[in-house]
Design a protein around this nucleic acid. Structure first.
Lengths: 228, 228
DNA sequence: TCAAAAGTGTTCTTCGTACACCCATGA
DNA sequence: TCATGGGTGTACGAAGAACACTTTTGA
């Protein structure tokens, strides 16, 4: 029988953002206390006594990064003794998705402490945070295939090519434009607006689309299964 | 800023067993302490200070049910304040699969305290344990479609119909015998032995099969994806 | 007029599904 | 000989994958 339990409970969050310019990126902070002082790490911290786990994640994100999140889902709990060199800390991890304007907000805070890193160029991290990012990326890759969570990473209105490039960035493989559009349009929760893309360089501007969440919920109730 | 953290960390396990006679079942214990004294609940308990989460689950299962488990996977962490009426307790839940002989072992222990319940006839449970079982069942239903974890619930050698009945019990729908066999055999990780099923009543005895895990790992490395 | 990106349809192959009759055994 | 459960193949339809040319715009 163990003596009185002495374990701390923390939450950590893998926040994904996407722009076609930056690609799929993760929000990291530079630690200013030991252990792992001056090392990059996931935002997170101890859970308050009367706070739900989700609230704790949202609070830490606000405090440490200024970002407020759009989609949040529990990922996994990491509890190996020794993963924190000082105390026993169990981390309940989440992953979140933010819209592209979060890339701007970050510039307003103390930029030395918070930064976006492309998923392929993550620096060495504190604790087991690299494993946590790997688990989050796996989950995202998997989930985006059967739930329309990709839209949580895009602006309200986006050209279709943006969605396609997002999928390619997340899945890290190329996708046939025609087949992809056929599949996605068929589900019927995308709405085509008559606005055109604001041009960024050469090329024919595309129509803007938006995700109709109500329509999606309705289709989901009717037992549709979304699969890319 | 919260005061000193005062949160306990527990693990709870949803242990699934299967026999064609009993169907898909969950192992429950009757609590002998408050809160929820004399109510059925999932086996589980507080995590020791120097014990991994998996070890804690295995230990609690041994202590409370005598069952030792075959496949164990983390499910979800439940941490809503108030889910335990006395203290703040965060429960990191697991689900596990056991071979049919665990149904016997249980009879050897104090039978009043440990019992198998068919998944469709779960009594009222302590805490939020009904939600936990629902989450575990969802996960199992989903996972069995793309990972060959069903074999963890069967004897080493089993007639093919046993596998099929297992899938029907887990998924709670009927399955076409011919199509199912075609699909499963095609993957190539099932071995047909020349033994015949020991007869239980009338009917033609079927050949026994066994799951070749090494073959499965090999196929998995080659990038096979199992899908029923 | 050229470069860059958007828009669009058809064919082929693969996979999923529906479906019914004979066989081996115990009672 | 009958009841019970095991074993097997074919045909149809749906969905996925491969694939290339035309259009609109800015430079």
């Amino acid at each position: 029988m163990p003596t009185t339990q002495d374990i701390k409970v923390a939450v950590d969050a893998v926040v994904f953002g996407y722009t076609s310019k930056e690609g799929l990126s993760v929000l990291l902070i530079k630690r200013n206390i030991d252990p792992f002082k001056d090392t990059w790490a996931l935002p997170g911290g101890l859970v308050g006594n009367d706070e739900s786990l989700e609230d704790a994640v949202q609070r830490e994100l606000k405090e440490e990064t200024g970002v407020s999140i759009n989609y949040l889902e529990q990922l996994y709990s990491f509890g190996q003794p020794g993963r924190d060199p000082r105390n026993r800390v169990i981390s309940i991890t989440y992953y979140g998705l933010v819209k592209p304007d979060a890339f701007q907000i970050e510039a307003a805070t103390d930029a030395a402490e918070v930064e976006w890193f492309n998923i392929k160029r993550i620096p060495q991290l504190a604790f087991d945070h690299e494993d946590i990012i790997a688990a989050a990326h796996d989950r995202l890759k998997n989930k985006i295939l059967y739930q329309p969570i990709g839209f949580e990473l895009l602006e309200e209105r986006f050209p279709f090519s943006e969605l396609e490039k997002l999928y390619m960035a997340v899945l890290d493989r190329s996708i046939d434009r025609r087949n992809f559009k056929k599949k996605v349009v068929k589900f019927g929760f995308l709405e085509e607006t008559d606005e055109k893309q604001a041009l960024a360089g050469a090329g024919r501007p595309g129509n803007l689309f938006c995700f109709n969440q109500q329509k999606y919920f309705q289709l989901q109730k009717e037992g549709i299964n979304f699969e890319i």
